[in-house]
Design a protein around this nucleic acid. Structure first.
Lengths: 206, 206
DNA sequence: TTGATTTTGTGGCGATCGTTCAAAAATAAC
DNA sequence: GTTATTTTTGAACGATCGCCACAAAATCAA
């Protein structure tokens, strides 16, 4: 009973995500959102509460669609090392298409220091990615594709850091070659080379 | 001839830097700046032009005081490897004191995509740091403290990336241990170990 | 001291901010 | 068709935004 929604909630939030993503929270007004989402500001308030609540919904949508899709790709991949390479490659190529960076990272820089709710959401989101990276590295080690001598947690942390660096440098206008080099430097030690097996053979020596 | 300034320009900008640093550009109003700098908004406009010009001055001041001081520490250090360790340590400890991050990086995320002037300033500032890191790595290689086999430019880029990651993760509330681990992972391959020399000895073999 | 010049505080400009409200439009249950 | 309920629209609300005009206060050359 009552009038039906003239918009689909999920796709309206998608448009809000796009706007927050490119312009950030403070530089996006309700009127901007109204124009981007194609609905009046009153409808926004009726459907989503206020600006901050809409932003939190947008963050959740970003996590579910962008972030967790990459996590699923890692977990479902048959070849862990290849999946890790593709993980960073995908981020480099996304950064090549536009310089919007990552909504989680942009929001971390802009808001996390002043809003505990948003900070914990972002920390959890990045934590999920790091955990997935660690799982994938571990799988690669079990499969023999990644040197078993290195610490999975350490390299997962470093890879997350590399992702952050790529996203931020992309915002400064860094070239695709630059970003690709950042990724390659991070991936390289994960590749089990002939040299690596020799290193492991040497390791036990005092 | 004419009335004298009641404030010191440089220290007034220092206070503007602090405000922009913690709250960003958009979330800092002229009235905020007026309160933080201890001068009226009319004096701000008289002395600095408008908000954007004041921000650019603040960025320059940050570069001259914060960024270039770390560069000087790298270039003047007697022991390059130690200087690189201290470079990342200093950033970790600064991030432990507060979660403000780095003004260059915060501004890159918030503004660089929408303002060419600011983007080029930030890109140049980060470029200076990366170049100093590369110089220092190279010096360390000449001194025999850093393995000569690795590429200085590659590791300088990665270290800059690590700095970015530390600054961003600090904003999400990451622990000091976490940040220290990020730094350690980046420094470790620069240390010439017994193992390293053996690796170099093995390298020429096909 | 006088006059020229600069800075300062006050107050307010028009615009935009996040938000809300009354009325109109639309729908489901009766 | 009526009623109850929900969403939509359009116009505003008070607050704050970046910015500036104005005049008083302060300074120094002449």
């Amino acid at each position: 009973m009552g009038r039906n929604r003239s918009f689909e909630e999920s796709s309206a939030i998608d448009r809000a995500v796009a706007r927050f993503w490119t312009h950030g929270y403070s530089a996006t007004s309700i009127r901007d959102l109204s124009a981007a989402m194609g609905i009046s500001s009153a409808s926004i308030y009726n459907a989503f509460g206020d600006k901050k609540r809409l932003f939190e919904r947008s963050l959740q949508q970003y996590l579910n669609c962008s972030s967790r899709r990459r996590i699923a790709a890692l977990d479902e991949a048959e070849h862990p090392l290849l999946a890790l390479e593709e993980f960073l490659d995908a981020i480099v190529e996304a950064s090549a298409r536009n310089s919007d960076g990552c909504l989680l990272i942009n929001s971390a820089v802009e808001l996390a220091a002043h809003d505990d709710d948003i900070r914990s959401t972002i920390a959890a989101g990045l934590g999920e990615v790091e955990a997935a990276l660690a799982r994938t590295i571990h799988r690669g080690q079990e499969a023999g594709a990644i040197p078993s001598g290195l610490d999975a947690a350490t390299h997962a942390r470093a890879m997350l850091g590399c992702m952050i660096a790529i996203r931020v440098m992309s915002r400064t206008g860094a070239s695709v070659d630059y970003l690709r080099a950042l990724a390659e430097t991070q991936i390289e030690p994960l590749r089990a080379s002939r040299l690596e097996t020799e290193r492991e053979w040497l390791q036990p020596a005092p």
